[in-house]
């Protein structure tokens, strides 16, 4: 674990100096703020766009706070995940292709520490971004709409964090396995979409499928998910994360000969 802290320091410096630690949270905060703000101004926006005939009775249902935060989650599910995958697709493949990994690999390197250092930094930035994004969204929801219990938000974001970690770990493992960042991103998307499709088509009874985590997370806003199913899905997701970390470390070791010399 001594190597882990040495390598984590390197990752820390990299993520500060390539500004990832600044711009990724910015993206999530903007996504989080946009939903409540756009919803709040929707009547004015519609009016300004002149789509309504003069004097028409204007009926626009005010969304509930949980609907707003669910819409924020939907933004994160699409744009947020795309940004994270693109930001971290080259984590390991990129070091191999540029040859910068060579001077690490010729040392007595623990590949588990190597993978974990990258995972820890990426996970920290992703989770900070996620939390800041939801907190910003929550703040504006309170400002423009109604109250929502803070504990419900905590439960929702906590559950959703596990889901984001799963996607992120998948991306890093793909980056360790595949020859370049583009392929890693494509593979991560493909796996994500395929599993989602399978879950959607066949998985009506797969109650502990990690793919249902976003749904269970959202359920905390209006009540709570069925506890046994929720715990099962979280447990399975954590197992998948550990499995992907082991796979990624092994693949990084296996592919060390592919680094540019």
């Amino acid at each position: 674990m001594k190597q882990f802290s040495i390598l984590l320091q390197k990752e820390w410096r990299e993520n500060i100096r390539n500004y990832k630690i600044f711009w990724i949270p910015c993206v999530f905060i903007l996504l989080g703020i946009t939903e409540p703000v756009v919803n709040y101004f929707m009547p004015q926006i519609l009016e300004a766009s002149g789509g309504l005939p003069e004097g028409a009775v204007f009926e626009f249902p005010t969304p509930s706070p949980d609907q707003i935060l669910m819409a924020v989650m939907e933004q994160f599910q699409t744009i947020g995940i795309v940004v994270l995958i693109l930001a971290y697709m080259g984590t390991i493949a990129g070091e191999r292709n540029s040859g910068t990994a060579t001077l690490l690999y010729v040392r007595p390197l623990s590949f588990l520490s190597y993978f974990l250092s990258k995972w820890t930094m990426a996970a920290a930035i992703s989770l900070i971004s996620l939390w800041l994004g939801f907190l910003a969204g929550y703040y504006y929801t309170l400002l423009f709409f109604e109250e929502l219990e803070f504990s419900a938000l905590l439960q929702m974001v906590g559950s959703y964090s596990i889901w984001i970690l799963l996607i992120l770990t998948l991306t890093l493992a793909a980056s360790a396995i595949l020859p370049n960042g583009g392929l890693a991103a494509a593979a991560a998307f493909a796996v994500y979409l395929l599993v989602q499709l399978a879950d959607g088509l066949l998985g009506a009874n797969w109650t502990i499928s990690p793919m249902k985590l976003p749904g269970y997370a959202a359920a905390w806003l209006t009540g709570n998910p069925r506890l046994s199913e929720f715990v099962g899905a979280i447990g399975l997701a954590l197992l998948a994360i550990i499995g992907l970390i082991v796979l990624g470390s092994w693949a990084a070791w296996k592919n060390k000969a592919k680094t540019k010399v």
Partner: peptide
């Protein structure tokens, strides 16, 4: 805050 973040992103970039 929206404008601040926007400007901030632009300056970083």
């Amino acid at each position: 805050p929206i404008f601040v973040i926007q400007i901030g992103l632009m300056i970083f970039a």
